[in-house]
Amino acid sequence: MSDQDQSLFAAPPMGDQERMVEAVLFAATEPVTLAELARRLPHGSDPAEALAHLRKRYEGRGVNIMRVGEAWAFRTAPDLGHLMRRESVETRKLSRAAIETLAIVAYHQPVTRAEIEEIRGVAVSRGTIDQLMEMEWIRLGRRRMTPGRPVTFVVTEGFLDHFGLESARDLPGIKELRAAGLLESRAMPGQGLSQPAEDEDDSPRTGQSELFED
């Protein structure tokens, strides 16, 4: 094989590979995996190395390249997130029941519906599960190898992306959740304390899922 033929199969210079990865991530509407980058880049490219160089180049910038589950995406630097917030009044918010259900899935995944109900101490409305799935914050996991083979629930990459987490291992502790206003000062469900009964605010209303409250 001639030098000219070999050059046809040679990988692009690393600088060019970085530019290609940058272009793909910038144009992507969803986080991109290394496997997808490998499929898009020319033969012989090393997307992992190109991504590592690119991440270093974006350190300290207004946008960073962040890991979202097993994929990668451009995201606003964490310390500048407040600049992106829209000054608007929220007319609806997650109900206590929805927050607790989501927290249980996040911290105890994979978890079955029966286990969610056991931790909360109350029945879980089907509307809560359905709406959290429609929001693409939780999804079905593997079935348990137990009688009845119940399905389990786990959080999605969309959930991780929304809260700026690389994986469920990066979930904040109880103090951080309370400081962010996501938990009241009472104990978090599943922490070994007595469970509260379902209150009036947690019950579905006519024409309204329990996921939201006024």
Score class of each variant (00 low, 15 high):
residue 80 L to P: 03
residue 102 L to E: 01
residue 17 Q to L: 07
residue 164 G to D: 08
residue 126 R to D: 14
residue 110 P to C: 08
residue 41 L to C: 09
residue 7 S to E: 12
residue 185 S to G: 12
residue 47 P to R: 05
residue 121 G to Q: 11
residue 159 F to D: 01
residue 186 R to C: 12
residue 23 A to Q: 13
residue 43 H to P: 02
residue 124 V to H: 01
residue 188 M to F: 12
residue 147 P to A: 10
residue 62 G to V: 11
residue 170 D to V: 03
residue 209 S to G: 09
residue 27 A to K: 15
residue 10 A to F: 02
residue 117 E to Y: 08
residue 76 T to F: 03
residue 45 S to F: 01
residue 92 R to M: 15
residue 99 I to Q: 07
residue 8 L to Q: 06
residue 72 W to F: 14
residue 209 S to N: 12
residue 186 R to H: 13
residue 18 E to D: 10
residue 168 A to S: 07
residue 163 F to P: 00
residue 54 L to V: 13
residue 51 L to K: 02
residue 196 P to W: 07
residue 181 G to N: 09
residue 108 H to V: 02
residue 183 L to C: 14
residue 67 R to K: 14
residue 137 W to V: 01
residue 79 D to V: 07
residue 187 A to D: 14
residue 211 L to I: 15
residue 96 R to Y: 09
residue 86 R to K: 09
residue 133 M to Q: 07
residue 135 M to P: 03
residue 8 L to K: 07
residue 81 G to A: 02
residue 3 D to W: 07
residue 59 E to W: 11
residue 202 D to H: 07
residue 169 R to S: 12
residue 210 E to Q: 11
residue 1 M to V: 12
residue 53 H to Q: 13
residue 166 E to T: 11
residue 12 P to G: 02
residue 68 V to E: 00
residue 166 E to L: 02
residue 139 R to Q: 04
residue 12 P to Y: 01
residue 124 V to G: 01
residue 40 R to G: 07
residue 110 P to M: 11
residue 179 A to H: 07
residue 129 I to T: 10
residue 44 G to N: 03
residue 24 V to T: 11
residue 195 Q to E: 15
residue 75 R to D: 09
residue 182 L to I: 08
residue 74 F to T: 05
residue 112 T to K: 05
residue 5 D to Y: 11
residue 66 M to G: 01
residue 100 E to S: 13
residue 135 M to S: 08
residue 99 I to R: 15
residue 203 S to V: 14
residue 48 A to F: 02
residue 156 T to F: 00
residue 160 L to I: 04
residue 141 G to N: 04
residue 214 D to K: 10
residue 49 E to W: 07
residue 170 D to H: 14
residue 214 D to N: 13
residue 206 T to I: 15
residue 71 A to R: 04
residue 31 P to D: 11
residue 35 A to T: 11
residue 197 A to C: 08
residue 198 E to Y: 06
residue 180 A to D: 05
residue 48 A to G: 12
residue 81 G to M: 00
